[in-house]
């Protein structure tokens, strides 16, 4: 599928996750965040950068790992991305939807 985000035509899956991370930039991330009603702050971007690092290192994401990341604790993670934090943050980060149940 294709979707125009931030005036760029991007490849996405049916749930709106980017399928080609190389197409991601901060403008794209901001636009996706806006769709999810999240106003991005420097703190949000720190977390997004962490998720992208984990993705590049092929580490599967889970709430438990986030809590142990040293970047953000679980409570703050839920405050930053209140509805479905791991899914929302992954979508903004341009990485695939996490498959973890924990």
């Amino acid at each position: 599928m294709e979707k125009t985000i931030a005036n760029t035509v991007l490849k996405v899956n049916e749930e709106g996750y980017l399928t080609d991370f190389s197409q991601w930039n901060q403008e794209v991330g901001s636009a996706i965040a806006q769709e999810a009603n999240i106003g991005m702050t420097a703190r949000h971007w720190e977390v997004i950068a962490y998720l992208q690092r984990e993705f590049k290192n092929e580490v599967p994401l889970s709430i438990r790992r986030i809590g142990k990341s040293g970047v953000v604790d679980i409570k703050e993670f839920y405050q930053l991305f209140p509805m479905a934090p791991l899914k929302t943050a992954s979508k903004i980060a341009g990485i695939p939807k996490p498959v973890s149940c924990i």
Partner: peptide
């Protein structure tokens, strides 16, 4: 499979609201 023990799981649940 990265499943926490009972006490840690309670901490996670609580932090998650």
């Amino acid at each position: 499979i990265d499943m926490p023990d009972v006490h840690e799981f309670l901490d996670i649940l609580k932090a998650s609201g």
